[in-house]
Design a protein around this nucleic acid. Structure first.
Lengths: 363, 363
DNA sequence: CTGAAAGCGCTTACAG
DNA sequence: CTGAAAGCGCTTACAG
């Protein structure tokens, strides 16, 4: 049944025959329309429409060795902070007729490798990764493949190829400096266990240390931190004997959970306990009190990655192989600048502290 | 530079030459390993490993007219209730060596069509759609393509090919019957404007009507309803003159927002106002009070769709082309069965009302 | 502006 | 169990 249908798929040959032109002309109709005379183009168009012909991209890719496909590897789809990046990437690429294939790598390293091998079989014109790749064997494979590769959402010291991201360590330090200013010293950290959350924690801890602030309590969870993690951490670590006055979370979801649980404990936010998140997801500004968090422009990361890839695809040399998109500490009511808990007068009740890119082009 | 690298990619010919076998043998090493003698297999394996050879799937697909790729079209990635479905699909397909390409259709109908055309160029072995396809032109294209197609998350009256979903109208009716039992009659609906949310509303309204309950107030929003929508709707529609005692939301996100805003207004949940969501997302059970909602097993939808596709790929005829996965009304503390607002004693404080599939196989 | 023809890297009857 | 060879549906110098 299927085979029957498939055999009926019009091909470039059948279209060419019906239009009375060569296959080269039909090919040019799609790929180099400017080369055709108006007459010829019209004739081809008519047949293409009539036959509902859709060029087989597999054959095209095989002949041209350009697939017009970009592969993206992300850990998971649910509760993924990378959703906006994939969206930005997909939107930008669509403008150039490029598609996106998504591979979900999970947390398992072996699975990641298998996914990558599978993806390389598709010979994508680009590979987008989230985070740095630790495994040297995989790195080597990517390097020899010659496929343009972009590591995103991080700023690896020794990148495989191109990078569009920001320094998590710098985020941690910026948050640390801000926390020092607020005067809060009893800190609970709700953190994911991944390398990037760890880097932020390291930057944060460094600043605290330099300022003689006691080491925070850390509630660590595998995978991205969820609403439930935030609740749980506060439920376990906030009690009569231990009462932090700041909860720093590795995701806005966890921050939301922390806020709800603090409230359940009859603690006021921010007067009793301030809360800081990470991500500036859609709901962060809508919370009550609005959430102080670190804004990452995931969409821009995707768009930027797309533009680098398109440059490469057009044979341009990419000079700035490392793009630091920076970040922004968005100060809102859940963790105001002063201990008292009243916001300094600000337009729209939010102040922004921009995280300057810490590296320049190609540095 | 890239071209240079690409030209170095080992091919099946170079592997065959190095191993002293024919290309057919190398092909069989990957696709029909049982056909090879242990000796031959070992020899090929050695060369494959040494050269880091990854078969070009484009060429393979072109030759065999099986791509081992399934295309999935979803509206958007952020705040998507379909995330679990894509995850389930992807996990199941990976087991069979199939990949997933994702197309984000957005809300725009024209964009959806373009995405679909682009996808058909990739000649996927299957297409997964979320929701029914209204446009007859698109339906026709899919039908003549002969590509196995699965409409999910809905139960269209006149499906294109296969279906894995549930009846939104039935969900609405089930929720309606439950609401009638709770005795609450002043209802605010926070709803998305899409066809499926509308179907649920219709089912719900029908039951209310039959029971002489006043028509609910409806706050409608385009796209999936978010946390912010829930807050906003409650902020606008709950006041001194209008005080619903039940807020029914078209997503758990909106329900969460509604809960937070109700609390801000010093209303008790569920004593003053009950809240019901949709989706049973990860945080629903963690909310305080835990959220009464409709559980949809998105993961199962994806897995089921994968299994239908694999059957087709193996040439099996699929007899039950319409699979109703049903749904489950999960009663939790945010909207208990009695008006008073105390939960009936239940193990784990949650009762489940299963939505039986309303259609049998092939009906 | 258009066409004839080689070639992209595989798969798969067919023959042995 | 293995191989020679045709063919999948395009693209693209090359020639005109």
């Amino acid at each position: 049944m299927r085979a029957f249908h498939r055999s009926k798929d019009p091909t470039i040959d059948s279209v060419a025959a019906a239009a009375g032109v060569s296959t080269a002309t039909v090919s040019r109709f799609f790929n180099e329309p400017a080369m055709l005379s108006a007459d010829t183009a019209a004739r081809v168009r008519k047949v293409v429409d009539a036959m509902a012909y859709v060029p087989n991209r597999l054959a095209g890719a095989l002949a041209s060795s350009r697939t017009r496909v970009v592969a993206t590897v992300i850990p998971t789809l649910s509760n993924s902070i990378f959703a906006s990046t994939v969206q930005g990437l997909s939107d930008s690429l669509a403008l150039h007729g490029f598609g996106v294939v998504l591979a979900l790598s999970g947390v398992n390293d072996e699975h990641f490798k298998r996914q990558l091998m599978s993806i390389m079989g598709h010979r994508p014109d680009g590979i987008i990764l989230t985070g740095a790749v630790p495994d040297p064997a995989i790195r080597a494979r990517l390097e020899v493949s010659g496929i343009p590769t972009i590591e995103t959402w991080d700023l690896p010291a020794d990148p495989i190829d191109m990078v569009v991201g920001f320094s998590h360590e710098a985020v941690g330090r910026a948050v640390g400096r801000y926390v020092v200013k607020t005067g809060r010293r009893r800190i609970l950290i709700v953190s994911a266990g991944g390398p990037r959350a760890l880097a932020r924690r390291a930057g944060f801890a460094k600043v605290l240390r330099n300022n003689g602030i006691p080491l925070p309590t850390v509630a660590s969870f595998p995978g991205p931190t969820t609403y439930g993690h935030g609740r749980l951490a506060v439920a376990e670590h906030v009690n009569a004997t231990t009462r932090p006055n700041l909860v720093l979370c590795s995701s806005d979801w966890a921050a939301h959970g922390a806020m709800d649980e603090l409230r359940r404990k009859r603690l006021r936010i921010p007067e009793d306990v301030a809360v800081i998140g990470f991500g500036d997801l859609d709901f962060a500004a809508e919370l009550d009190p609005a959430l102080t968090t670190v804004k990452i422009d995931g969409n821009a990361i995707g768009a930027h990655a797309a533009s680098l890839l398109m440059k490469r695809a057009q044979g341009e040399r990419v000079r700035e192989k490392i793009v630091d998109v920076g970040f922004e500490l968005v100060v809102r009511a859940s963790s105001p600048p002063d201990l008292a808990g009243t916001m300094t007068a600000r337009p729209r009740g939010s102040a922004k502290i921009r995280g300057r890119p810490i590296r320049g082009p190609d540095s």
